[in-house]
Amino acid sequence: MKLDLPKKILIYASVTHILNDLYLAIFYPLLPFIADDLDLKYSQIGLIKTVIMGASSMLQFPAGLISDFMSEFWILSIGNIWVGLGVIGISIASSYYLLLILSLIAGLGGGFQHPVASRLVSRTFIKDRLYTSIGVLNFSGDIGKITAPIVVSVVTLKWGWQTCLLAVGIFGVSLTILTLLPINRWVFKHNNLKNIHENNDQIENVKVKTSLFNFTKLMFAGSLDSVVRYTVLTFLPFIFISQGMSIKNTSLVFIILYIGGALGKVFSGKLSDYFPPINIIAITKILTSFSLLAILFIDYKIALLVVFFLGIGLNGTSSVFYGSVARVTDVNKRGKYFGIYYTATEGMGAISPLIFGIISDVFNINVAIYAIFVICLSVIPISYRVNLKN
Rank of each mutant, 00 (worst) to 15 (best):
I241K: 13
L257Y: 12
F254H: 03
F275L: 15
F290M: 09
P276T: 06
V228A: 03
I286P: 07
F290E: 10
K248Y: 14
G244W: 04
L271H: 00
V228H: 01
V227Y: 03
S226R: 11
S272W: 03
P276W: 10
S272Y: 04
L293P: 11
I255L: 14
L233F: 12
N279S: 14
L287F: 03
K270Q: 02
G260N: 03
S291F: 04
S242C: 05
Y274C: 03
G264C: 09
I259V: 14
K265M: 11
N249S: 11
I280D: 04
L233H: 08
L252F: 03
N249H: 11
L263K: 06
S242M: 10
N249I: 00
I256E: 06
F240A: 05
I259R: 00
S272E: 00
I298K: 13
I280W: 07
T231H: 08
L287H: 02
G261K: 11
G261A: 13
F254P: 00
K265L: 08
F238K: 04
S272P: 13
I247C: 06
G264I: 02
F275D: 03
I281F: 03
F235Y: 15
I259H: 09
P237Y: 15
A294F: 14
N279C: 08
L236K: 08
F275M: 15
S268Q: 05
F240C: 10
F254D: 03
S291Q: 10
F238S: 09
S291G: 11
P237C: 12
I298E: 08
S242F: 09
V266C: 09
V253M: 12
N279W: 13
A294C: 15
F235M: 12
Y274T: 01
L292R: 06
T250P: 01
F290K: 06
T231R: 07
L271G: 00
F254A: 01
G260W: 08
D273M: 01
K248A: 07
F238L: 09
I247G: 06
I255V: 13
S251N: 07
L236E: 07
P276I: 12
Q243M: 14
R229W: 10
I295Q: 04
G260P: 11
I239H: 05
Q243S: 11
K248R: 14
F267T: 05
S268Y: 04
S226Q: 09
F297T: 14
A294T: 15
T284A: 02
I281K: 01
I241P: 05
V253P: 05
S268T: 06
S289Y: 07
S272M: 02
I259M: 13
M245Q: 00
T284V: 05
F267C: 01
L292E: 08
D299V: 12
D273I: 02
